[in-house]
Design a protein around this nucleic acid. Structure first.
Lengths: 199, 199
DNA sequence: ATTCCTGATTGACCTACATCAAGAAAGATT
DNA sequence: AATCTTTCTTGATGTAGGTCAATCAGGAAT
């Protein structure tokens, strides 16, 4: 339980950092959140959210590496990586509680802490502090989403790789090249050339 | 006042559509929101949010055309268009209440209805229904942001133009070509060729 | 160790789009 | 109306990165 409380504090801190808003929740609220958080583990290769399944959780990764991807004309497109200390959701599915086209798989064994949608909604409905915090989680996610979209505009393949190397070096070390290439909007061949310094 | 109430209803409806969540606010809440909404007009070419200024409002466009843009290495980059019936904010600045690098200008005379950040926060703090609605506004914006980012992946210049033509035909008709080109991640020359059917 | 099999690298070639430069058109200014 | 300025179009050329094909390297299965 101590562990969960520490993680809730981290999650609050992350939302606070992103939105630049001092979010201070009472100990009671933090306890409530920690209380609904459940631990899950995944084996390497295991799916966390399949296609057509509803994304039920907002998830914090204590340890491991998650890849989020979808199929675009039968081609596997990597949309996001998340690893130790990051959070992830299949946004559209989670918000709408509708079947997801975005999938999440474990590229490594994972230790996860998950907050269930319905439990979170229930808490938020009963506790204004949590509703407020919930809003800032989305506000933070929105800022991140826009920064990411903008950063991909007008960058070369090389620059995109360099950025990933700076911002998520663990992904470059731990994820297979083909997925990294897809995430960086280039072919595996091109990424190979970027790495070799030929591009 | 009747007018403002109708607009608040539209805004709620839009968030509801996007998140696929039935958002029904009490008449009292709707009245409160309508009460804090202020009408503004802009002349053609007038700035709504300058660089370095804090974005104070969530804005609904009754009539007109807004372009949001920023400078990337002294180059003017169009990030978003919004017109009749759309809403817009300079997200990062609005959430953080910090100086904006994103600007908003009127490409046409505009009739706007604006909700001030502080007034909205105050209402949300006092009224859980509004806090809940506020969250879904961001949830909806997050979904839109991700759909937009994904749609730009793996599309050709031609396809991007076709999509804009489908989704925001009024922009194609009413905005200068150079801004459309920048929004669509291509040069004015390329857009000209796309239109001529040469690309 | 040998055979698969899948993923990574390398090379040759190609194409979508950028860049550069010159005109044409359309507003704005006098 | 005539000039000026800015925007748009058209053409010639260049290039980043895609595509296709061959080879190579590292695990897993026999």
């Amino acid at each position: 339980m101590e562990n969960k409380i520490a993680i809730i504090r981290k999650i609050i801190e992350a939302a606070s950092q992103l939105s630049k808003i001092e979010l201070c929740l009472s100990q009671a609220s933090i306890d409530q959140l920690a209380h609904i958080m459940v631990r899950k583990t995944l084996a390497k290769g295991e799916m966390f959210c399949r296609e057509g399944q509803v994304c039920e959780y907002i998830t914090y990764i204590e340890k491991g590496l998650i890849r989020q991807y979808y199929y675009k004309k039968h081609k596997d497109v990597t949309e996001h990586f998340a690893s130790d200390g990051d959070m992830f959701i299949c946004t559209e599915s989670f918000i709408r509680q509708a079947p997801s086209h975005l999938m999440a798989e474990a590229l490594e064994p994972c230790d996860l802490y998950c907050i269930h949608h319905d439990a979170f909604e229930k808490l938020a409905a009963a506790n204004p502090e949590i509703q407020y915090f919930y809003r800032y989680m989305f506000a933070g996610a929105l800022i991140l989403s826009q920064i990411k979209a903008d950063s991909f505009r007008y960058e070369t393949a090389h620059e995109r790789y360099e950025r990933l190397l700076r911002q998520q070096p663990e992904v470059v070390k731990r994820a297979p090249l083909q997925y990294i290439a897809s995430y960086l909007l280039m072919t595996p061949e091109s990424l190979s050339r970027v790495r070799a310094g030929l591009l």
